[in-house]
Simulated assay, not measured.
Amino acid sequence: MTTTAAEVTTPPGAPEQKSRSKVRGGGLGRYILIRFLLIFPTVFILVTLVFLLMRTIGDPITASLGGRLNAEQLQERIHAAGYDRPVIVQYVEYLGQIFTGNFGTTISDNRPISTVLLTYGGATLELAVYALIVAFIVGIPLGMLAAYLRDRWPDAVLRVLAILFYATPVFFAGLLLKLVFGVWLGVLPIAGRATTSTELQMQLLPNKTGIYLIDALQIGDPAIIGDVLSHAVLPAIALGLLTAGVFLRLVRTNVIGTLSADYVDAARSRGVSEFRLVRKHAYKPALIPIITVIGLQIALLLGGAVLTETTFEWKGLGFMLAQYLSARDFVAVQGIVALLAVIVAITNFIVDIVAALIDPRVRY
């Protein structure tokens, strides 16, 4: 019996394998498409809620300038801004502006909100990255240690510590850190993103990014880099510990679950030490849930950034949001919150895709 070239090059079962690969690819593609399409209703709902909540207090002009202008001047400003039109008309116009990237103009200082976002957005992004680094450095090793020492007194202490990290208000943690390291020990600055001299040098950069660490690296002076990093330590710890508590409990739970798997039992029966089992076999599977919740933690970090930036006078979007709330400038508040909603939705989409690529079970 002769064998054809097609039979040699195509082993039995190849059509079935090809079909399975198509299914897998289709599953991932379908998952990405669905997650991408979900961005739009998510942003739409959040923007709508913010718009309606802002309108429950009346028109923004009266809320912001009611005590500084007389009735005639107020009416002129209200009419010029279109706030005397029906709410549904304002809502449709606002949605159109959002889709074109126009978030409006602030009432208190008459600046385009897009300019505010570009000016202060880098500071909030930088703080969020620092806080995530702190959360990873603190939460993951402590979670692995708690799993390794499970059901012993260090495990109980670490679990209580995780609850304290998560439950302690960010502003309270920030005040304690300022008191201990800034006032009592005097080793770290307690306010601002850098000293005045450093900020003046950064303003002279032709390609400044607004992210101080990148700008400091462009200058290349170790003293300036150290100044920027020293100002970031306390805000990053105050905000990062909030997420570190979540990571600690997640890693502990998933490492303990992995240690009860059959392949771990087989390795244990061969005499592999418990520490090596935690470090080699249970570590990576425990990171998958961390990746899946990073999107949610970004929202938590952005919410905590308002209090952290206000506590440390870290001039980012959270700091400006608090200032505009104090000035009752609800147009600016509306624009900043809308942008944060878009950032959170896109971040969740990216994290979901990464999680689906790492763990195929996520996509089904």
Rank of each mutant, 00 (worst) to 15 (best):
A266F: 15
F165L: 08
R30N: 15
A194G: 04
G186W: 05
L296E: 07
A128H: 06
F103Q: 04
V180H: 01
A236F: 04
P11R: 10
V272G: 02
S19D: 09
D155H: 07
Y120D: 02
A305V: 09
G174K: 03
A261Y: 00
P235N: 06
F99C: 04
V92K: 03
V331G: 00
F36G: 12
T243M: 13
I358Q: 07
A147W: 08
F40M: 08
T42A: 15
S64C: 15
Q323I: 13
D359R: 06
E126M: 06
L287G: 09
Q218F: 04
A131S: 15
I107M: 06
A146M: 03
V344H: 03
A216S: 13
L117T: 10
Q90L: 13
G101M: 14
D329H: 02
T124L: 00
L125G: 04
L142C: 14
V342S: 01
L176M: 13
V278W: 12
D359W: 04
I211T: 12
S230C: 10
D329C: 03
E93C: 04
W153S: 04
Y94D: 04
T4W: 07
T292G: 14
I225L: 13
Y148H: 11
F172S: 10
G121E: 13
L229M: 12
G139S: 07
P15H: 05
A128N: 08
T48H: 11
N348D: 09
P12D: 14
G304C: 00
G26M: 14
D352V: 01
I211E: 05
V337P: 05
V255K: 10
I39M: 14
A131T: 01
A80C: 00
V354Y: 05
F275D: 06
T3M: 05
S230W: 01
I288C: 03
F165T: 08
G96V: 13
D84T: 02
L340E: 15
L213M: 10
F247D: 11
M320S: 02
L242D: 02
Y130T: 05
L200D: 13
D359M: 02
L185Q: 12
R363K: 13
A299S: 08
K18Y: 14
A156E: 06
A267R: 14
E93P: 00
D329V: 07
L118R: 13
M320R: 12
A167Y: 01
M202V: 11
G13T: 05
V43L: 02
I350E: 03
T209P: 14
Y31D: 12
Y94A: 11
V351M: 12
Q17F: 15
H281D: 11
G66Y: 03
V354C: 02
H281K: 07
G174V: 06
A282K: 06
V157I: 15
D227P: 08
A81H: 09
